[in-house]
């Protein structure tokens, strides 16, 4: 809770939040180029308000966000690492403003896809989750990548990043159960295939539980991988059935990536000694192509659901 003192208000429009509104929470640093599309994507899904923590951006992100009518913005110069990778800040914001709201916690490069998301709003999903007494909704973080070198097609502000990064790995994921927090630990995809082929244990976790009917007694433990109380982590069925779930399309691998990796490596503010970024920097020197003959081209959520990367569960 001490972490709240890190945050100073830039624009607090939380009085606009109405009962039943769906919120997005995010923390970011120097993501100006992504923000236009990010905001419009979630507005289109039916999100009503954004709660954003700016971690000392110097590229105009803060100024841009401060002007948005549906954004409440805080800023901090404190270390991302010391705030347990932003989780402390978001937990504080959620406790203050998200109580009793369906809240989607995503990074600016994560795009939530759920069953029927092309024909139904996020409110349809959360209403349905309410009627079935479900409090949390699980996703797979699906790494998207372009064909060819990452910097071949520059990303322009406002552009749909999946016009460029439209490929993904459809079936090379591994899952283990975390016996303590009871969440699943999912790894795989192109990052494990290319960057961690010799050290798979260190490949990043792809299990995320971004959508939660927030209660002020809840907390995220590490990123959005794990929640407390532990029951919130049971977003999967253990008796053979399928619960409804979604995907976070991850637009990490664009031309912006090399620069970002360099910057993050310099700041050393990431998880486990930033070993992930070390691995990227190492491999990026060879200008890798994440694409392979068996890569799948993204079409829509129905494709993802047929491939078994998400599920409708009993939502019809």
């Amino acid at each position: 809770m001490r972490k709240r003192h890190d945050l100073s208000v830039v624009a607090n429009r939380t009085s606009k939040i109405a009962p039943g509104d769906v919120l997005v929470m995010s923390t970011l640093r120097n993501e100006r180029v992504r923000l236009d599309y990010f905001l419009s994507y979630y507005r289109n899904l039916g999100v009503n308000h954004f709660l954003i923590v700016d971690n000392d951006s110097d590229d105009g992100s803060r100024e841009f966000l401060a002007e948005q009518d549906d954004v409440s913005l805080w800023t901090t110069k404190a270390g991302y690492k010391r705030a347990r990778f932003g989780v402390d800040w978001l937990n504080w914001l959620a406790r203050e403003y998200a109580h009793d709201h369906w809240t989607l916690t995503v990074d600016p490069d994560e795009f939530f896809v759920f069953p029927f998301s092309d024909t139904r709003s996020i409110k349809a999903l959360t209403d349905w989750l309410d009627t079935t007494s479900v409090r949390s909704f699980g996703t797979l973080l699906l790494d998207m990548y372009p064909k060819g070198p990452l910097d071949a097609q520059p990303y322009r502000p406002g552009q749909d990043p999946f016009e460029i990064a439209c490929w993904f790995d459809s079936g090379n994921y591994v899952i283990e159960k975390n016996p303590y927090y009871r969440n699943l630990w999912v790894q795989g995809g192109p990052r494990m295939r290319v960057f961690f082929a010799n050290d798979p244990k260190r490949a990043p976790a792809l299990n995320k539980i971004p959508l939660v009917k927030w209660d002020r007694t809840y907390v995220y433990v590490s990123s959005t991988h794990t929640l407390l109380p532990r029951g919130l982590n049971l977003v999967y069925d253990e008796w053979g059935g399928e619960k409804a779930s979604g995907v976070l399309l991850h637009a990490k691998f664009l031309d912006t990536f090399a620069h970002k990796a360099e910057e993050e490596l310099e700041r050393r503010q990431h998880y486990a000694g930033s070993h992930e970024y070390k691995a990227y920097a190492h491999k990026l020197a060879d200008d890798p192509d994440l694409w392979c003959k068996w890569s799948e081209k993204y079409i829509n959520w129905r494709q993802l659901e047929i491939l078994g990367l998400m599920s409708k569960g009993n939502w019809a």
Binding site: G138, T139, L140, Y173, I175, K177, L184, V186, N207, V235, Y236, D237, E238, W239, G240, G241, E242, K243, A244, S245, G308, L309, M310, S311, K312, G313, N314, W315, A316
Partner: peptide
């Protein structure tokens, strides 16, 4: 079909919302 998807699931599929206990894989 939706109820069957929820209760029986797709055999042989392991994903973020289907991870059967040993013996319940169907």
């Amino acid at each position: 079909k939706a109820v069957e998807r929820r209760t029986k699931g797709r055999p042989g599929l392991y994903m973020q919302s289907r991870f059967p206990n040993s013996g319940w894989e169907n």
